[in-house]
Nucleic acid binder design. Structure first.
Lengths: 282, 282
DNA sequence: CGTCGTCCATACCGCAACGGTATCGAGTCC
DNA sequence: GGACTCGATACCGTTGCGGTATGGACGACG
């Protein structure tokens, strides 16, 4: 009935993305005719047309659009399944933590201390990444991550809030707004904001890949940036910070793949919760 | 590399559930030797042992446990992808709404009126179900649903709150607590509570499959039940209601499969939001 | 202690289906 | 109308899936 093989889905995704059987075949490393047949067979078995073929350019039908979207997540689910199972069976076990350098608001030492005091704690490996942290969790490349809500897309992940951080704006010292005590979002309307690669909503502005690049651009007055107030602990020459009265706060969350709460992940989350609780009391 | 076919995952799930190659083969409708080979091949390609074979009973390795859990969701994702794509391409389009009979807190007429006034509204089909509403959404058998938080498991779904409903306890009229004006949860500690099939946390107590069964048992004094206060609109002979001061309120949410917010689903959610807003103002 | 029964693995075979090459046919551009 | 592009069709070799028969390990039982 609906016994669709992953190969067929991979083929369809390639065609749907390229909208060109020849190029898709090259990308898949097979010849064009078998690909055409596979897609036709898939369409036949599903009983719907997936794409409208014209000799100059094909395009997806509505069913095709839906299948493209859904097939991507299904294929991700499969490779995540394989990757997680592999990792679970590997002799050298470790817990991979996805995080942004400095994105721990000073909690990390506490978290690690709490985790490593657990009876059967695994060695923690760090997967530093600016973008893609959520994707790493979804695809099984990481077990647990420190993310920010609502800056990161937590879809497909389970999470637990650790701490709420007010957001401040990073300005060049000679910036006009540096004269104010605090600002509001409306004041920043005309400013250029940098884009993090993982941002949910892309806008104009340069894409920055690490905090160094960001601070450089801020100091030069090329951009202003909303950052967590823990940035105040790491001063940078030529950059000053001002409170943003109406910016939604950033919530630091510990996140893990939905439904993969292994014993080890659970222990880490518990440790993070403990660390955050003690921290906020301090 | 990780090109695992769905057939292999289905085979593995069958074996992992039966823990017996012969029975799994029967269930899959194939002979035992090909199944053994397929599992061995899968293990070889993944580079991990998935199950420990002994002539008297097999059991899963840790990697096998992980793969079983993850493969189930991956297979669900695939059949959901196929089902949704089929539905998107079907000539006769409709929007399937999963709900519990009477589980709309009186909002349904408003919601439907608001939705059907949309320009390209689809005919709404009802999929009444007590349990399994969340599962219907996840598997693509329904497009949108009216669920309750935290009574339903919203994992894998996106949702939007419509209204918050205080919870009341349904009691037989001659029940000792019927003498009180209101009660608290501690008063109910010793009472038998019925179980809905879809409940997140199962406990003891009879499983009830519809409101009729439930009210019957309540009237007989066999159980007491926490229900939404909208139950007051549907009186039942021999049953009375009392406020529960400290019961967490139930939130009626409109939910849909994460990442499948089609134009039609979006329109329905908008209609539900509108209806709920007007309702709460009234 | 040998026999039997259970259960998974191996050996071998036939066939479906996958992928490759060559070619056709429809639509497009000049 | 000719040349070109691009997907579909025809045909063929090979892979690999599934079936039957059998082997071999292990535990039960007399």
């Amino acid at each position: 009935m609906d016994d669709v093989e992953t190969r067929e889905l991979r083929y369809f995704v390639a065609v749907a993305e390229e909208l060109h059987f020849g190029r898709a075949a090259v990308r898949l490393g097979i010849a064009q005719p078998p690909l055409s047949r596979a897609i036709r067979r898939l369409e036949h078995r599903m009983g719907v047309a997936l794409l409208e073929r014209t000799s100059r350019g094909n395009h997806l039908t509505e069913a095709g659009e839906v299948l493209l979207r859904e097939a991507r997540v299904a294929l991700d689910a499969i490779s995540a399944a394989v990757r997680r199972s592999r990792r679970a069976g590997a002799a050298q076990r470790s817990l991979v933590l996805a995080m942004k350098p400095g994105g721990d608001e000073g909690l990390l030492p506490r978290i690690l201390a709490a985790y490593e005091s657990e009876p059967d704690a695994l060695p923690v490996e760090f997967a530093f990444s600016l973008g893609e942290r959520a994707a790493m969790l979804r695809s099984g490349r990481a077990d647990v991550g420190l993310l920010h809500h609502p800056q990161n897309d937590l879809q497909g992940l389970a999470s637990e809030a650790l701490s709420v951080e007010r957001r401040v704006v990073a300005l060049a010292e000679e910036h006009r707004l540096a004269a104010c005590d605090s600002v509001c979002l409306a004041d920043l309307a005309g400013e250029t904001m940098p884009q993090w690669p993982e941002a949910v909503d892309r806008g104009p502005g340069p894409v920055v890949r690490d905090a160094g690049e960001l601070m450089q651009l801020v100091a030069l007055g090329r951009v202003v940036a909303l950052v967590g107030e823990s940035a105040l602990d790491r001063p940078y020459r030529g950059v000053t910070y001002r409170a943003v009265r109406d910016a939604p706060p950033a919530t630091l969350v510990v996140a893990w793949p939905e439904g993969s709460r292994s014993r080890h992940v659970a222990a880490f989350v518990r440790a993070a919760r403990t660390a955050a609780t003690h921290h906020s009391r301090a």
